[in-house]
Design a protein around this nucleic acid. Structure first.
Lengths: 182, 182
DNA sequence: ATGGCCATGTAAACTGTTACATGATTAA
DNA sequence: TTAATCATGTAACAGTTTACATGGCCAT
């Protein structure tokens, strides 16, 4: 998407929680953020440089051992304001699905196309697996009420993602024709 | 996304239905395809040229009036095979949400954050509107069973999109705190 | 000592959006 | 005649992915 850089706000939001290195931020996309946004370090490091140039963040060099210089980035007041302003803006854009399975389904013309049932089965497995993953995340991250109260938004979107997968699987199963056992 | 060009398969799929011009294809993204994929003519025309170079499509020039030369593109056997091969491949990738509202929610830390309820209300309106749009599309495009039988996959994904919006709205409403009337 | 992880960068290729640019046809 | 639509292209820019590239730290 050649458009408004949303990644910068994620970075600002993460740095608002605590100062972190580029490496730490990259790791965050493998964990909680990865559920709804992806980014590689090759995108993060240049963006950190840019955000520093625009005065939204600063860094301090920390030495680990003898030679390894880590850059701990933190928000400036301007960066914090930018984050708050973004969250306060309306979000009037609908999500494009960009789901390759959906794309392929569009070109299946009839209900008796022999490709349909295997496609549905494959997607059921995929989304059941994802559902299990999300449920496990919920169990581990939000084991107690205190965790929910401190990261309420995160709790909400995980809850949303779980329901979404549950409904997706239910929908797929509805169009699955039971195989006749011989 | 700097990755496997999915747009080419949509174009192949559309040309598999009938020969069309670049303009016709562009229009398709304003109509049915637009629900789940976007593309502008500036992306379509160069891609048509590329697909012709790789032997997946050919074109014939048709004259409309005195001067206007239209290029009617059609699939070659190779292009058709490429389409069939793509549909037959597994689709093991999960969709990233890329939903800006979800992104913002992540940074709402507590349930009593004053920004939360207005955000939910805004999204309810947005998704209710989208739901109405999709229901209207379903009524008009799939008014009779024959239409469903001839474009079953399209029917399925529209059905899926409708359920998705219904559940989204239900989920949003669950976390909406009723405003007290004075 | 070596493999896994920590840590930071750059380069190339590609996808996608917005803007620039032009002209023909058709219906009111 | 004029506005809407048909019709085709290019250019510039921004975001994203994959690959290239390097080196330190730490536990076994």
């Amino acid at each position: 998407m050649g458009q408004r850089n949303r990644l910068q706000y994620i970075i600002l939001g993460l740095l608002d929680q605590r100062p972190q290195t580029g490496y730490d931020l990259t790791k965050a996309f493998d964990n909680e953020i990865g559920e709804f946004w992806q980014a590689q370090h090759s995108q993060i490091y240049p963006l950190l440089k840019r955000l520093e140039e625009t005065g939204d963040i600063t860094h301090e060099v920390t030495m680990t051992g003898e030679k390894l210089a880590k850059k701990q980035y933190q928000l400036t007041p301007a960066g914090h304001e930018k984050l708050v302003a973004w969250i306060g803006e309306p979000s009037p854009e609908l999500t494009a699905l960009k789901d390759e399975f959906i794309l392929k389904l569009y070109f299946i013309k009839t209900a008796d196309d022999p490709r349909l049932q295997p496609m549905l089965q494959e997607q059921i497995l995929l989304h059941q697996r994802q559902l299990q993953h999300l449920l496990h995340r919920q169990e581990t991250v939000f084991a107690d009420q205190a965790a929910i109260d401190q990261a309420y938004g995160h709790y909400l979107i995980l809850d949303h993602a779980i329901e979404r997968e549950q409904h997706y699987v239910q929908w797929l199963e509805r169009y699955l024709t039971p195989r006749k056992d011989s």
